[in-house]
Nucleic acid binder design. Structure first.
Lengths: 240, 240
DNA sequence: CGGAGTCTTCACCCTTTCTTCACAGTACTC
DNA sequence: GAGTACTGTGAAGAAAGGGTGAAGACTCCG
């Protein structure tokens, strides 16, 4: 299993949609390429053998189903997983596509998150490795609201510099590095101190309280998920 | 995913019933084989690995439940889906069977159409989600209607985020991870708390009620299976 | 050694959630 | 169509989870 990025081919004639998919695919650590026609797709696929194909059903020249069929006939392209994209009301085509061997599908309009989840699932099933999006950034920026700068070790919220203790900084950085993801108290402790630190999990609460107080107006960004842990509110990440 | 006909094994001691099932299964494009005893069934299943087992609970030698248990113990037979056939008044056996891992059931006397619809459903599910027991996906996606995101610990129904308590989230996740599969109250309790939790099974009803209320328009997705438990509806299920 | 700043734990209180109970409502049987 | 069995649901008490102030411990520094 390679460590390389997964290669994704996007077959979609509407440029906006294609770019939307491309953007999110790359953000998820895949290498994306887009083509706008069925014939070109077949050609590119035969040459480049991508790891995954995102295939719109409605194409100007060669129908998506037709593309699918041709790929499944080709000895060397048969095993490439296909995720179909269809407009609502093309259910029968979706069924046909699945029967032809497509692996999954999404219906337009789709949320980027849903699409990416499907792509990841299909890739995983196919055994293709995909590098997780590396969060090695030295700086986290969120909509101009919050800046977490690892180099300077300093946090700016709503334009004002905030003075955080080491632990608070660590927690905020950990949470903000994956906005929306819930972290358990144990995970938070582990991220700040070593893995196998034994600490009362309530300790985290205290730091969170302090953090919120210092964040002032942005206190809401640190959300409590009752019974689970905490997460950094996504606020305005991607649009649907 | 093979294109061949689905292989169905009918375990049924009454010849008339067995033939009835066989007839309809073959008419539906499956390849059917029937055996009349539990012991023989185990033997045949181990050798032939059918795609689906139709299992009568009342058998002369080895009880249907016993067959079910043995199959679920075998590494290589565990994932073969089972549809149980039971006579009226064997509800407790049905519950036991489902807890053992059977996937669905029909009650005698059954209409062939109902039975075949169930078989088709189970086959389709098994074909799509070929993973053995648990869906390890961090995200469950259902037709754009419902998104259960484990990482974010968040549920989106028909595009809107909904706020669920921990227990409700757990129940929904459990049910939705296997759409169409019936789950007993005990299974549901076990999935949320530990296995050997002692709770009034009626507690589940209360959570289901709350869950349905919060799901709004999607409330119908949580179906009651009278006498057995609950299941997540697949939307386009069968008609009677 | 003393003090400042930080981290951890504890205790208390409030809120949310869970569970149970009781009764109403509904499906199924005879 | 009456009786039975099962499910839906409101209400209330019990339990759990989380916020927060305060106290002690620890570290680093002068």
């Amino acid at each position: 299993m390679s460590n390389a990025k997964a290669q994704v081919l996007i077959v979609e004639d509407e440029p906006e949609i294609a770019e939307l998919i491309e953007f999110h695919a790359e953000r998820a650590g895949m290498r994306a390429r887009k083509v706008h026609s069925g014939r070109i797709a077949i050609d590119v696929i035969k040459r480049e053998k991508p790891d995954l194909i995102v295939l719109d059903l409605m194409l100007p020249d060669l129908d998506g189903l037709e593309v699918c069929r041709k790929l499944k006939q080709g000895e060397d392209t048969r095993s490439i997983p296909i995720v179909m994209v269809s407009a609502k009301g093309e259910e029968s085509d979706v069924v046909a596509g699945i029967e032809l061997g497509a692996d999954d599908y999404v219906t337009k309009p789709f949320s980027p998150r849903v699409l990416m989840a499907r792509l990841r699932n299909v890739l995983r099933r196919a055994g293709v490795a995909n590098d997780p999006p590396p969060t090695t950034d030295r700086m986290i920026l969120l909509e101009g609201k919050l800046v977490v700068d690892l180099d300077r070790h300093e946090v700016t919220a709503a334009g004002k510099k905030i003075d955080l203790t080491l632990t608070e900084f660590g927690i905020l950085h950990y949470l903000a590095s994956r906005p929306g993801f819930v972290r358990t108290r144990d995970q938070i402790i582990g991220s700040v101190h070593g893995k196998n630190t034994v600490l009362s999990s309530r300790t985290v609460d205290v730091h969170i309280t302090a953090l919120r107080r210092k964040l002032g107006a942005l206190a809401d960004c640190v959300e409590t998920v009752r019974g689970v842990g905490y997460r950094f509110s996504e606020g305005a990440t991607e649009a649907e």
